[in-house]
Simulated assay, not measured.
Amino acid sequence: MRNFLLPALLIISFYSCSDGDLQIETIDFDSATIQNCTDPVAESSNVLFKISEDEALIMELQNGALNNGVVGETVTTESTVPSQTKLTYRIFSENVTSSYFCDDIPPVTPTVTDEIEAGDGMVIIETVADEENNNFVHTISLSGISFITESGERITNLSINEFGEVTTAIPN
């Protein structure tokens, strides 16, 4: 009986463990450069994105998230995900370029093979004036970001703590 029980338990434990449909182990965009189609504007919402071959991380900042700041001070703005800022991770059928996001009519290829929305986290924006006091430099960081797949699985093994820097003009 013992000779039968041990193999049976091993087989049952092997088949009972499932990783589900989750194929993404980590989301890493630290080495990718932040891009945008139009110059960011402090008074409106802004779409920023990072591309890494066939993957993209898209951030849609809420209206006014890139505030005007104060010359001589560091101003910190926080925006919650997903209620204020939308963060989307996409996997494409082949390498993607900025024209996919910036063209009036997006190209037919590549196609989106998977899209996952962030369901939790915080976007932190630190704003300071540059040395010449001509522009505000906004350093965008992510904290506690968690993506949720369609099956309800969470992806929290992220390497995207610093999203990047963008500049806006200091108003006269």
Rank of each mutant, 00 (worst) to 15 (best):
N3Q: 11
L5E: 15
L6E: 15
L10M: 15
F14K: 02
F14D: 09
S16E: 13
C17Q: 12
D19N: 08
G20L: 01
I27Y: 03
I27V: 11
A32V: 03
Q35S: 09
P40E: 01
A42N: 05
E43H: 01
E43L: 02
V47K: 04
F49M: 07
I51F: 11
L61D: 08
G64F: 00
L66N: 00
N67A: 03
N67Q: 07
V75R: 04
V75Y: 01
T76H: 00
T77F: 05
S79G: 05
T80S: 09
V81D: 04
P82C: 07
R90T: 08
E94L: 09
E94A: 15
N95E: 15
D103T: 06
P106Y: 02
T109E: 11
A118H: 00
G119Y: 06
D120M: 11
M122N: 04
E126T: 13
V128N: 05
D130K: 02
E131G: 11
E132T: 14
E132M: 12
F136N: 12
F136C: 10
V137L: 02
H138N: 01
I140Q: 02
S143A: 04
E150Q: 15
T156F: 06
N157V: 09
S159L: 14
E162A: 06
E165W: 06
T167Q: 15
T167D: 01
N172A: 13
